[in-house]
Design a binder for these strands. Structure first.
Lengths: 144, 144
DNA sequence: GGTTATAATGAGAATCATTATCACTACGAT
DNA sequence: ATCGTAGTGATAATGATTCTCATTATAACC
């Protein structure tokens, strides 16, 4: 049981839901990934041990509890990743050729610049910002 | 015929496709919108004058020609907007409550800061960046 | 330890956005 | 005017996701 798992367990119990075997497997698979995963990818990765309908339900439960967050970058699919309060704040490199999404963590200095920038945007737009995400589009090393 | 329309026409003819009535209507609707639009929204907005299957095909053609670009921010749907070379570079405010997406153009100073930032990200990641998009998540004025 | 109320699961049906198909129409070149 | 190709519209097919419901597992209580 990884360190984060304790936090996940607590968060779920606060939401009044159980941290069952299937849910643990999904969370573990997401922890092991190096980018957001779709329900189908998770189902695959778990070798069918968790049926696809359960993967969807589990993701919905985890999202509701704030353990994972959805990410929409590819055509018709939703990918999920461990929420930032557990995994740390980061951004995404999106390959415009193959669609792969890679996490990237900014050095503190860049991140604070970005936060200041978002703050200014929020002010100038009468929009109460609660989060932000920088998406850099380009070619991944494999497609370059 | 707006000024941009000339550019669209030229771009399409370079792609060897015609700029037909239905396509003009879709482009006009996108020009009139103040954020990305889905196929269903466009179909609605055009009061059924353009059948839904044609809206989809038109969007595919326009994307192929580089006249519009897709945007994935909401659950299972793809929204499109006029490409940046026609409409100008901008970013998005995404309402975490109602899902609405609003365009926002950054003042030159902020935009250049952001570009420098993206440049550094690109370097530190061996990822050849071709574009970027800042998404600010929060509550729109209606949902606040 | 067994019982019971409730949460969770799994298989499949139902739904929604999107894509493919195909007969038909419109346009441009000859 | 006509012929070939591009475009259209209705509808069927697909793929991701959600819903339903009967069954199973779990935690709290006796």
């Amino acid at each position: 049981m990884s360190i984060e798992d304790k936090d996940v367990e607590e968060r779920l119990s606060q939401s009044g839901v159980r941290y069952t075997g299937g849910r643990r497997q999904v969370v573990a698979a997401l922890q092991g990934a190096d980018g957001p995963m779709s329900a189908a990818e998770l189902h695959q990765g778990l070798a069918g041990k968790v049926p696809v309908s359960s993967v969807y339900r589990t993701l919905a439960v985890l999202e509701e509890a704030g353990v994972v967050q959805p990410h929409h970058s590819a055509k018709g699919i939703t990918r999920y990743e461990i929420a930032e309060w557990l995994a740390g704040h980061h951004h995404h490199l999106v390959c415009i050729s193959c669609g792969a999404v890679e996490d990237i963590e900014l050095p503190r200095s860049l991140e604070s610049q970005l936060e200041r920038l978002v703050g200014e945007v929020s002010e100038m737009s009468a929009f109460s910002a609660s989060g932000h995400s920088l998406e850099v589009d380009g070619l991944c090393t494999r497609c370059a």
